[in-house]
């Protein structure tokens, strides 16, 4: 299986503090992966590096069949290449309707001029409707995103990500602040999405990770501590030491 994303030997430090230390990570084209780790393990920095927000001091980040380096690209270029990111705090555009938000995210030419001349076709409207059904917001299409509940905002953001049609989805704590039924729905969405693309879920909540039923990567102090099934890593001595206290 050829990897979609290959991160190798990446290190980054902030003011002498090594946030990421010689990290190596791989993910295939249609794979669900959970990344867990205690606070300060470098989970968010890891995502920042992939999405171009932070440039690493050393190492390689290779993408796709052509093994293109993501390090030379800007955030928007990386997003266009097919990396979608969901932030921990739901960041939707509060002033815009659900329909507009999804239309905004729909995979189209992103240049200013083509956006200026863009008028949605019926197919685009249909696609927006379809996405809204998927995230359970079809009744709220005309509502402003700011009026949605916390869980609905999370879904809207996931919907916007799906609209982008990325090959790799990075999801930061998708279940934070969700009710049990909302969590279940979110799990379904992610598992479904991972059938056609790579999905990386960063999560604190072990129960949620267990429900995802996928390979788990444990980060600690900026590098990979253990990797494998959830049962495998929870039995790992090092993980127990870090996670459950010595």
């Amino acid at each position: 299986m050829s990897a979609l994303l290959e991160v190798s030997g990446v290190s980054v430090s902030f003011d002498g503090f090594k946030a990421i230390n010689n990290l190596t990570f791989q993910i295939g084209k249609a794979e669900l992966r959970a990344v867990i780790g205690p606070n300060g393990a470098g989970k968010t920095t890891f995502m920042d590096i992939i999405t171009g927000k932070t440039k690493p001091d050393e190492g390689r980040v290779l993408w796709g069949d052509k093994s293109q380096s993501l390090l030379a690209l800007s955030e928007s270029q990386i997003a266009q290449a097919g990396v979608g990111r969901k932030f921990q705090r739901p960041t939707v555009f509060e002033d815009q309707t659900v329909a507009d938000s999804l239309m905004l995210a729909l995979r189209k030419d992103r240049g200013p001029l083509s956006v200026l001349w863009f008028r949605p076709s019926q197919a685009d409207h249909a696609k927006v409707q379809e996405l809204a059904d998927e995230i359970g917001l079809s009744a709220a299409l005309a509502r402003k995103a700011g009026e949605l509940s916390h869980g609905q905002k999370q879904w809207l953001e996931i919907g916007m990500l799906l609209a982008q049609d990325p090959q790799l989805l990075l999801v930061d704590e998708p279940a934070a602040g969700m009710s049990p039924s909302e969590r279940e729905h979110t799990t379904d969405l992610l598992v479904e999405a991972a059938k056609t693309r790579a999905v990386v879920v960063v999560e604190h909540d072990m129960e949620f990770v267990r429900r995802l039923n996928c390979k788990v990567t444990v980060l600690h102090e900026g590098s990979v501590l253990a990797e494998g099934s959830i049962d495998h890593v929870t039995k790992d001595d090092k993980v127990i030491e870090v996670y459950l206290g010595r």
Binding site: K53, E75, S76, A79, F93, D95, P112, V115, P120
Partner: peptide, 28 residues
């Protein structure tokens, strides 16, 4: 009015989020 306005208002409200949607904020 259309999508351009949507992008521009999104830039006003959360510039970095727009970047991760794949829009070149600087160009807009």
């Amino acid at each position: 009015s259309g999508k351009f306005g949507s992008v521009v208002r999104a830039i006003r409200d959360d510039e970095s989020r727009v970047r991760f949607l794949g829009y070149s904020v600087e160009a807009f």
